[in-house]
Design a protein around this nucleic acid. Structure first.
Lengths: 208, 208
DNA sequence: CCATCCCAAACGGACGTTCACTTGTCCGCG
DNA sequence: CGCGGACAAGTGAACGTCCGTTTGGGATGG
């Protein structure tokens, strides 16, 4: 049961979210604000107007929450970046686009992104290993992008590939610490400014 | 035979650390590896070969450890950067030097730096406010550096000051996530490569 | 009537911290 | 030389509290 004839289907026409979804949302917020271990199930339940034990009708346990939040964040990054992987674009354009998408994922999911960057250490070994492997693929994505750019002659030939990828990742990932949705800057603004600085450099071209 | 000749005074000439210092050191490591709330006083004591309660002969409580670790890290950044504040250097040289010192502090104190970046949220309001204020001063330091560079004509005049400072801070701060002391790269290597990329840009200069 | 949602209470265990007590070492004094 | 007190360091058990989780039962509504 509980699979084919499940009438409590989320009515897609209404903004109504499953109780389960609400729990994930609030958990994302609390985990990002206070951290995973500093958030108790009773805190979480309280924000949803219920008792601690009642949560267990909807989820299987605390770590289930963390795993789901982290996995969703990872899936967002995947969805954003991996269509770009083999896109027929020059490397500078591709870098611009990748940074824009990457920053947009962070900006549109500040809470889960924060949880993703801060709390993944607390996952059980299996989920921990999965996240580590996933991070490597993102790393490789940017390294390949840089390599491609060097081969094409778009990027300087004396770049260190790993270090360059690290620098790019620093820029896009660190946004979770300072970006404020609803402020003056859109994710696109940030990405454009960053890409412009990274590609063209900070130094004045004339210089006198 | 635990400590044969432990002088009651902290003999500053010997590499002997007081028990208190040892506690801070181990706490830095554990807090950075597992996080503040996921480290118990009994864990900490166990690593030092003693019982949980024995810690309280040397420290006043768990939060005392966190405050001290975070404060020490902050002091290191201060000491490294604030002599540069009014140094008579062109902005590009000053940026190089600042990045090098900043990264060196992170690299030489990976554990406390990690605690500093991850666990400061868990400080009590007073200490929390102090760290927040401190972060602002670092932010201002880099903004002033960028401003100076623009005024001098060393940096591009169309740079957004805040965004540029953010980009620089991203690069130097994010090193705590990937740098490995004892590896092939010295802090200087990283800083030089980063500064070179930031100042000169990734794009090939010839390119037709 | 059944299913869903939630409450209220309880569970064992881990937490930070306290405390009376032992241990080992040094020092002054006869 | 031996004794006794001071002292710092560590033990191990206990404290109250909070934790994640389980359970049995009560309301509500198709």
């Amino acid at each position: 049961m509980t699979d084919s004839a499940a009438p409590p289907e989320p009515a897609t026409e209404a903004p109504i979210k499953t109780r389960r979804e609400q729990i994930y949302d609030v958990a994302s917020r609390l985990f990002s604000e206070r951290g995973y271990h500093a958030t108790s199930m009773r805190d979480l339940a309280g924000e949803l107007g219920m008792q601690g034990g009642s949560l267990y009708a909807h989820i299987s346990g605390k770590e289930d929450l963390l795993i789901e939040i982290v996995n969703r964040a990872a899936r967002q990054f995947d969805a954003a970046l991996f269509t770009l992987r083999d896109a027929p674009l020059p490397a500078d354009r591709k870098l611009r686009e990748a940074m824009q998408r990457h920053i947009r994922v962070v900006a549109d999911n500040m809470e889960s992104a924060t949880v993703f960057f801060h709390e993944w250490k607390h996952l059980s070994p299996t989920a921990y290993a999965r996240v580590t492997a996933w991070r490597d693929t993102i790393d490789i994505f940017y390294r390949e992008l840089v390599s491609q750019g060097i081969d094409e002659g778009v990027f300087r030939h004396d770049l260190d590939v790993k270090m360059t990828a690290n620098l790019i990742l620093s820029a896009v990932n660190w946004t979770y610490t300072w970006y404020r949705p609803g402020g003056a800057l859109t994710p696109r603004d940030v990405a454009e400014a960053y890409a412009e600085m990274l590609l063209g450099g900070l130094r004045a071209s004339d210089g006198g």
